[in-house]
Write a protein that binds this DNA or RNA. Structure first.
Lengths: 205, 205
DNA sequence: CGATTTTCCAACTGCATGGTTGGAGTTTGC
DNA sequence: GCAAACTCCAACCATGCAGTTGGAAAATCG
């Protein structure tokens, strides 16, 4: 049988996403990843160095997918409720990502995976929101970075602390559509300009 | 030397809080807890059954502390910005708790620690907010449970995803006082009634 | 004070787990 | 078509780790 190194690599990553999302970096088992991928364990060490390298590779791939799927352009930054909704949808369709992200946040203390690239990406989003603030579409009473923080917090927490959500809103509050509507509305209210708030300057558009 | 069983128990819990908050249930090491507490490992199994029992005991104690320190009474529910600020202060002073809570959320799939008691507590808070909605202090456009969700999400995320926060608001945005101010303001805006929104009914006060 | 129970510890056990090795099959370059 | 390089695997290794055991010191009870 011929070889397909790219496929082995991909199958390992696919299996690893599941494993790390479910159990986290400490709880994940390398043997289980290999077994579930139908590939020998040793391949993991050739391709990714060690367990931590595999985790970083997994996270990096998911980060790229998110960035591609849910952009925040200058035009879109005026409606952060919509952005919250799109983020929510992506996380609903790809439930692994947020779990990986928060395993990372809790477990690894030092530099984040692909920190520079991610920081630059966030910076662009903050700039887009600042622009929307200048054109009066978003409140200027709070910093653009803080607003982005708020939106992410509102979207993410459903997935990160589902047990607290369950204890707060009850089983009937676990409905995805209802959660989505709530998040969009909360984000809108949080970011809306005051009724008589004037635009503060020229936009970059 | 005389014995003090209550003290050994407490020293184990104190050491375990640190350990579990830092490494999570999977990453935590029983030996390390015992060593750091200056107590023999076997004591842990006598007092708490197993590693998971120790984790639950730790979490339960911290939950009680939080409930005692940051209440949400009928009178206080009208100002959710203030509640957000008080929550934020408690978490700043007790940084272990939120990490434990989110390790729990990510790691354990089934029933939560002390689920019934916690659910009842949350239910009371939701009821208090619903009351504030009826008296027109808080917007009625969103369910009370969802509002409580929003406040918790806004407060907690600083502590849960510090690496994302760092990449979003930069090193200068990591100032606690600034974060507190942002959270309070975001919560106020999110929960404020619309300008002409009328009270919807009688309060229970 | 003697018998019994309780607290505590040093040392041990068994196994799960991250990582390695030696070699066999497959492709590539000349 | 043959040698060098690469992909892959079964089996192996060392150690880290949750949980246990046997017995010594301290308390309790009569």
């Amino acid at each position: 049988m011929p070889w397909d190194t790219e496929a082995t690599r991909r199958r390992l990553l696919d299996a690893a996403v599941e494993e790390f999302a479910e159990y986290g970096p400490a709880g994940a088992r390398v043997d289980r990843v290999a077994r579930s991928a139908g590939v020998n364990k040793e391949r993991i060490y050739q391709y990714f160095g060690d367990k931590d390298g595999l985790f970083r590779a997994v996270l990096e791939r998911e980060l790229q997918r998110l960035a591609a799927a849910v952009p925040l352009t200058l035009e879109q930054a005026g409606d952060l409720g919509d952005y919250a909704g799109r983020l929510f949808d992506h996380h609903t369709d790809h439930p692994h990502f947020l779990r990986l992200l928060h395993w990372e946040g809790l477990a690894s203390g030092g530099e984040a995976v692909a920190e520079a690239k991610r920081a630059a990406l966030q910076h662009d989003k903050v700039a887009a929101i600042a622009d929307a603030q200048r054109s009066g579409l978003v409140t200027g009473a709070i910093g653009a970075g803080q607003l982005l923080y708020g939106v992410m917090a509102l979207v993410d927490w459903w997935f990160v602390a589902p047990h607290v959500v369950r204890m707060t809103v009850g089983a009937e509050g676990m409905d995805r559509a209802a959660q989505r509507a709530a998040v969009v509305e909360l984000a809108r209210r949080m970011t809306a300009p005051d009724r008589d708030e004037p635009p503060t300057g020229a936009t970059s558009r």
